[in-house]
């Protein structure tokens, strides 16, 4: 256990070094922007996959945590009551509290009902963001930018510092999530997903485990929201709109939900595709919709789902049973 932990930490460190060096090797600010954007979405998707891929709970409402991270961080910084690192911690705590409240109600439900209830909460959250104008700025978003005073010599107003900070936070969050899914807790999640009844017989408090996972998943997703808020120096209600959840789900599916790195790969691919489609055509819907249809009807699996799980038990399995498909042959 300790050996693999050290190895993983070294891999994370190496990844960080490569990422920090990338924009200097060519690509410049455009590449840096792309990586920050994809990192924000990637954290949302990877956080979401803690629920979808590892626990078998499909949340349609994770955009609300993405938004709660962005909004609470932005509002705290605008109030100028604490430095950036503390504000991030505070934003995570706020999101965790909201998630605990909502999760306690939602995780009792299963399958599609869980999905719909999270969707309903998200729509409610979105309408609060729109109507609570004094705090959220309504549909104008948090007005006037998010001030980021210098801390420990880090000045987030400088693009290089911002990039380094965002990448570091992302790698750290990814590392922590990987630790979680490889821990005994992670194995319990997979057991619940594969056979909830067995888990109950073995004395697992399923409700508590699911709720913990829900909160963790929400908190990590909100880190993505904080990064996006930093990047565009604002927070907007559409962070909490259902289409944001929809895109995150697409990233999870695109990259592959059976692999830990699937969602972040999905985020890299979709963000890149978005850029290309928007740059070269005015018909976003036609092209992206076409790509989605090709993917969902043609490939039917995420990119990394094709990679054979290398005997490591930490890999989540696709919730879809192949057996089901066999009973439902095409005419």
């Amino acid at each position: 256990m300790t050996r693999s932990t050290t190895r993983n930490a070294l891999i994370a460190l190496a990844a960080l070094v490569v990422l920090l060096a990338l924009p200097h090797l060519g690509g410049g600010e455009k590449l840096a922007d792309y990586i920050i954007f994809a990192a924000a979405w990637g954290l949302l998707a990877t956080g979401l996959n803690l629920l979808i891929g590892y626990t078998g709970l499909i949340s349609f409402g994770h955009a609300m945590f993405f938004a709660s991270g962005a909004y609470s961080f932005g509002a705290i910084m605008q109030a100028q009551i604490m430095p950036v690192p503390l504000a991030i911690v505070a934003a995570l705590i706020i999101t965790g509290a909201i998630a605990a409240l909502i999760g306690a109600i939602c995780v009792r439900l299963s399958e599609i009902y869980f999905a719909f209830l999270t969707l309903a909460f998200q729509m409610f959250f979105h309408s609060i963001l729109l109507s609570w104008v004094d705090v959220t700025g309504g549909d104008n978003g948090l007005l006037g930018g998010i001030p980021t005073p210098v801390f420990f010599g880090v000045d987030l107003n400088q693009p290089e510092h911002l990039y380094a900070f965002c990448v570091t936070v992302t790698v750290l969050a990814m590392y922590l999530m990987h630790r979680i899914v490889s821990s005994p807790f992670g194995f319990t999640l997979r057991m619940i997903r594969d056979n909830e009844r067995r888990a109950i017989f073995l004395g697992v408090n399923v409700f508590a485990v699911k709720l913990t996972c829900f909160v963790l998943s929400a908190v990590f997703s909100s880190v993505g929201g904080i990064i996006l808020a930093l990047f565009i120096s604002g927070a907007y209600p559409d962070f909490a709109f259902w289409t944001t959840s929809g895109e995150a789900i697409f990233m999870v599916m695109l990259g592959g939900l059976t692999n830990f790195f699937g969602p972040i790969l999905g985020a890299l691919i979709l963000t890149g595709l978005n850029d290309i489609v928007v740059t070269y055509t005015d018909h976003y819907g036609l092209f992206l919709g076409g790509i989605i249809l090709l993917f969902s009807l043609g490939l039917r699996k995420g990119v990394l789902d094709f990679v054979k799980p290398g005997g490591r038990k930490s890999t989540p399995a696709q919730p879809t049973a192949d057996a089901k498909e066999a009973t439902h042959a095409d005419a």
Binding site: I52, I249, I291, L293, L297, Q318, T320, E325
Partner: peptide, 12 residues
């Protein structure tokens, strides 16, 4: 199939 795949088909 997985409800997510159905969702994606509709979304596309």
């Amino acid at each position: 199939e997985n409800v997510l795949l159905q969702l994606l088909v509709c979304y596309g």
